[in-house]
Every structure is written in structure tokens, then in C-alpha cells.
Design a protein around this nucleic acid. Structure first.
Length: 535
RNA sequence: GCGGGUGUAGUUCAAUGGUAGAACGAAAGCUUCCCAAGCUUUAGGCGAGGGUUCGAUUCCCUUCACCCGCUCCA
């Protein structure tokens, strides 16, 4: 499927529009149209229903180590700035980048490593980029190439000092960039603010700077104690939240896949440290299955465990659920959801001050004065098990899903072109959005076969009665075949048609979107029939 | 942020230094007893700003957006 066809259908049928389009659009922001808003809401509702309100607290679910509880939360987008300092976002999101004028490459300032080296009477700082697995080797190769030397003469290179970061240099004059052939091609470090800044108060100055949240998760962590104190939940339990987040992506790309304003569906699941590994595996497998149950093709979906090098050391595991989006090259997948084992990093950071993830066991990161770099709340966020009497800081499993990415995946998955006969029996290309009935924007469309003989009246009655339970649509205009095809493009799974026989025996036909099959049911049974079909 | 490409109606496209056409789609009506192509009618557009010119949708500059590659993706 070509992506342009889907993008054009989304615009044409009102799934997705570019934000602020009449002003020329704005990069990285997208609006959901009349059909899109229903689709996305259905996805979010299905998630909330399946994970939270529909959750059975009493029994042990298949694959789960024990029964558990689920509850919800809805917190603000703007939070106390200290939240982002302790979460680590403040430091991580203020990356300095340098660009190479020669290679056009861009590098994280602090991740370029290099060594001073002298040969042929010239001293340079040879470097390797952050993606280099063998920086020492790459740096030597760079140096040899620059000096025009062969590798057998490598011992003529006079190294001065150990591998060090570019950040230790005052000037880039003598720097040989990772992919450059000449010296001094790097620009000055420039700050990239990956968090959106805003100002609190009409007169706010620098001291009143706040941030739009880059993830919903932190709101759950900072409310952990509130939820425990107010809701009688016991570990293990999860807190779910759906809401907007904001990231100043450097390059928004691929339709809505990488947007600057986006919506997340996140769970923070709190459990005992001893059982966290099992819970991690439980959530990973359960969430993977969920996408398949909602209609994503198993063959286009992978569960990718992060390699040990990708993991934060405090994490036992992180897995991505990834989908083979059509805009990606063959064999590549895009992340829909990440399931991360986060240990006690977050709760402890909000208690004690931002932890240094590179220490083991983790200790609070200190500044030059030996004080915490970012102070925590000082509040006790540990949990006491009333039955065992044990007190501990729970470990956290975080299934973090992108609502917009899920919506995009379902749109891509649904887009189908097949062949259907026209009124003369000739086969015609038919565009069908094959959404799972649960997420289809419109559940059913009701038509009078022709606009006379009492059919519209009966069809309208049916429309009104079904409207109480579902988003249904009524259409009496034009040829019925045209009306069917219009609903196919909207992804409506069922079309109900009132015909001549209906006037005699009060039955109507139901037409299935994917099979084109039709069968008759009593008009009075439509609600129960649809309930069966939609699930 | 860099390089390349593209911006004309809701969509897909055409033409032109003298203010734009088509197809499909949409709307209204007619017809129609089951899968978009029957009839009539209607609405709708040169991404934005500036310049050159008597005159710019067309040429030039800037900008914005989209696509591809690089970069980035905590």
C-alpha cells in the first residue's frame, strides 16, 4: 500500500488533517477530523476498558503471577518544574548538538569522543561519533587517513592523553570531525530544547518557566502516594493515564508517526521487587497480544527485546512492540509501545533526588559541591504491605503506548483495495477500511433501498433506536451501491437496508463490509444482533 | 538542521507572462427493489509574502508545508 493513498483518503474522508492548514500548516502537528476523532476515541476507550475498567481484580489472569488491581488518573500537562529535573528529562532534553559543515552530520556534543594525536609535525583532535562501537579503532583510522599514512605505520602516531569528550575542548579549530576529511568543520554547540517551555503567570520571567510534559508517566509517579492513600489499592496494582504529551522533535516525519504534540496511553504498574521480572514478562506479552486482538496483522507486528547495551542498567528489560508501517523500508518497524522495567528509579528519584542511572546500586547524582544535582521531594514514597509488614519501594513496569501511533497503525492496517462488482456485474476496485468493529468510527449505516413506499420512515425508526447504543449513520440519497461504497471507505462494518420485503415482514438485510454477504434479520432483533457482531 | 524534489478545486491531474480546465468526489432534484460510471443543476482552486513587469498561477527572491535521503528519535 502506498502511503500517499492513505494520506489522501484520510484528508478526503475526514480522518486526519494537517493542523492550521489554512495558514499553510505547522510542522509536526495534526488534527483528527470527524471520522478520525471517533476512531482514535474508540482506540483509547478500548484500551481503557480492557486495561482499567474492565479489569478483573479478583482472579488471576492468564499469564499473570497473581491477581492485581487497576485504577486510573488524569493529571495536568504542566507540573512543578522539579518533576522534570528528578525524572531526568531536564538534563537529557537539553542536549547540545554540533553540526559538521563538511559531512552535514549532526552529533550530540557530549557524545563525540576523541584523542589528541600528533604526526608529521601537526597535532589534531581525532574523533568518533556516538554510534561508534569501537571508538579507539575509528579514531585511529580517522587519524591515519588525515595524515595520509598506512595502518602499518600506526606506531608513528603520537597519542597525547586518553579518550576524552569533545566537551573538554575550548576550540574546534584542530578537531577532525567523525566523518570529515578536514579540520575545524564542526559548528559551535547549539542547544536543542526537546521540552516545550512555557511561562506561568502573565508577568512570568525566567524563574517562572515551566514545561509541557514530555510524557504522562511522571504524573503517575508523583501521585503514587495519593492513589495509595485514597483508593485502598494494594501492591501489585497499576495506574493508567491517557493524555497529551509534547516533545520538540528535531525532525517530525512520516505523517503522524513523529508528532510534536501527541497522546499517550500509559500504565505504571507497581509491584514487589522480587516479582518484577515476572510482571514485566506478563505485561510485555499481554500488550503484544492486545494489538493483535484489535486487528493488527501478526506478521507485521514484532516484539523486540532491547539488547543489554540499550538498557539502562537498573532495568531488567525493555521491549518494544513495533509495527511494519508502510512508510518504512522493507524489514524495518516503527515503535507502537514500549514496555520498560524501570526498577525503583522513578519513585526513589522523586523521594531522594535524581538518581544517577550509571551507579550501582543507584545513588543520588551530585553536583560539584557534593549536593544533590536535583533535589527530590523528601516525601516517603515507599509502600508498606499491611499483611507481611514489609516496607519497600515498589518496582515499576511501564507499558507506554502511543495513541496516535496506534491509530496510524490501525489506519494502515485497515486500508484495503479489493474488487467488487458494479451494477452491471463488472469488477471494480473498491477501497475498504477494514477496521475491527470495536474501533470502527461508524458501527452501522441504515439505508432505505429506495426513497419511497414507506422505506425511509422505517429506516429512520431503526436509525433512532440504534443511535441510543452506537454511532450509526442514515443515508437515503442516490443509488444504494454508491451508499455502500461510501461506507466501505469510512470503514463502517455493517449496512442495514430496508427494502420491499421489510414492509411485509419487518425484516431487514445486514450487509457485511468485508465479505459483501447479506442476511435478513428481524428489525426488532437488530440491537442484539449488532451487539453480537460488534462485541 | 543539511541536501534533493514537490506545492493548481475535497482528491488525482492539465494548461498558460494577458487572472485557469478535466475526471472523480461533494451538494440539490429526478430516476432507481441491492453494490460507485442514468439524467438535470450548482458550488469550489493557483500555499503565503515580496520583487521584476503595463500585467505574474507562470520568471526571480524569501518563507511555510509535504515527500525522499542524512541527522535525530531521551
Amino acid at each position: 500500500m502506498e502511503m500517499e493513498k492513505l494520506v489522501s483518503l484520510c484528508k478526503r474522508r475526514g480522518f486526519l488533517f494537517q493542523s492550521s492548514e489554512i495558514y499553510g500548516g505547522i510542522n509536526g502537528f495534526w488534527d483528527y477530523g470527524p471520522l478520525g476523532v471517533e476512531l482514535k476515541r474508540n482506540i483509547k476507550d478500548a484500551w481503557w476498558r480492557d486495561m482499567v475498567t474492565g479489569h478483573d481484580d479478583l482472579d488471576t489472569l492468564p499469564g499473570a503471577p497473581s491477581p492485581f488491581e487497576m485504577t486510573g488518573l488524569d493529571c495536568t500537562i504542566i507540573m512543578h518544574p522539579q518533576v522534570w529535573k528528578c525524572s531526568g528529562h531536564y538534563d537529557l532534553f537539553h542536549d547540545y548538538m554540533v553540526d559538521c559543515r563538511e559531512s552535514k552530520g549532526r552529533y550530540r556534543y557530549d557524545q563525540i569522543k576523541g584523542r589528541w594525536v600528533e604526526a608529521k609535525g601537526k597535532k589534531i583532535f581525532a574523533t568518533a561519533g556516538s554510534n561508534s562501537e569501537t571508538p579507539e579503532v575509528d579514531i585511529e583510522r580517522q587519524a591515519l587517513k588525515f595524515f595520509g599514512m598506512r595502518s602499518k605505520n600506526a606506531d608513528e602516531l603520537k597519542w597525547d592523553g586518553p579518550l576524552t569528550s569533545l566537551t573538554t575542548l575550548d576550540s574546534f579549530e584542530e578537531v577532525l570531525a567523525p566523518d570529515a576529511k578536514s579540520l575545524g568543520t564542526l559548528t559551535e554547540p547549539r542547544e536543542f530544547n526537546l521540552m516545550f517551555k512555557t511561562t506561568i503567570g502573565a508577568l512570568g520571567g525566567e524563574a517562572d518557566t515551566a514545561f509541557l510534559r514530555p510524557e504522562t508517566a511522571q504524573g503517575i509517579f508523583v501521585n503514587f502516594k495519593n492513589v495509595v492513600d485514597s483508593s485502598r489499592v494494594r501492591v501489585p496494582f497499576g495506574i493508567a493515564q491517557v493524555g497529551k504529551s509534547f516533545r520538540n522533535e528535531i525532525t517530525p516525519r512520516n505523517f503522524t508517526f513523529r508528532s510534536r504534540e501527541f497522546e499517550q496511553m500509559e500504565i505504571e504498574f507497581f509491584c514487589h521487587p522480587d516479582s518484577s521480572q515476572k510482571w514485566y514478562m506478563y505485561w510485555r506479552d499481554r500488550r503484544y497480544k492486545w494489538y493483535q486482538e484489535m486487528g493488527l496483522d501478526e506478521k507485521k507486528l514484532i516484539l523486540r527485546e532491547h539488547t543489554p547495551e540499550e538498557l539502562a542498567h537498573y532495568s531488567i528489560g525493555t521491549a518494544d512492540i513495533e509495527y511494519a508501517f508502510p512508510f518504512l523500508p522493507e524489514g524495518e518497524y516503527g515503535e507502537l509501545e514500549g514496555i520498560a522495567h524501570r526498577g525503583d528509579f522513578d519513585l526513589r528519584s522523586h523521594m531522594e533526588g535524581k538518581l544517577d542511572p550509571d551507579t550501582k546500586p543507584m545513588t543520588v547524582e551530585l553536583n560539584e559541591d557534593g549536593k544533590p544535582k536535583h533535589r527530590g521531594s523528601g516525601k516517603d514514597l515507599s509502600y508498606r504491605d499491611d499483611i507481611t509488614g514489609e516496607r519497600f519501594v515498589p518496582h515499576v513496569i511501564e507499558p507506554s503506548a502511543g495513541a496516535d501511533r496506534a491509530t496510524l497503525a490501525f489506519l494502515c492496517e485497515a486500508y484495503t483495495e479489493d474488487e467488487a462488482p458494479d451494477d452491471k456485474g463488472n469488477m471494480q476496485t473498491r477501497v475498504v477500511m477494514k477496521f475491527h468493529p470495536r474501533i470502527a468510527p461508524v458501527k452501522a449505516s441504515i439505508f432505505p433501498l429506495v426513497k419511497k413506499d414507506g422505506m425511509p420512515e422505517m429506516a429512520k425508526d431503526i436509525y433512532r433506536s440504534l443511535k441510543k447504543d452506537w454511532n450509526v449513520f442514515y443515508d437515503e440519497k442516490g443509488a444504494v451501491g454508491r451508499r455502500y461504497r461510501r461506507q466501505d471507505e469510512a470503514g463502517t462494518p455493517f449496512c442495514i437496508t430496508v427494502d420491499g420485503q421489510s414492509m411485509q415482514d419487518q425484516t431487514v438485510t445486514i450487509r457485511h463490509r468485508d465479505t459483501l454477504e447479506q442476511w435478513r434479520v428481524k428489525a426488532d432483533d437488530l440491537t442484539s444482533e449488532l451487539r453480537k457482531l460488534i462485541g
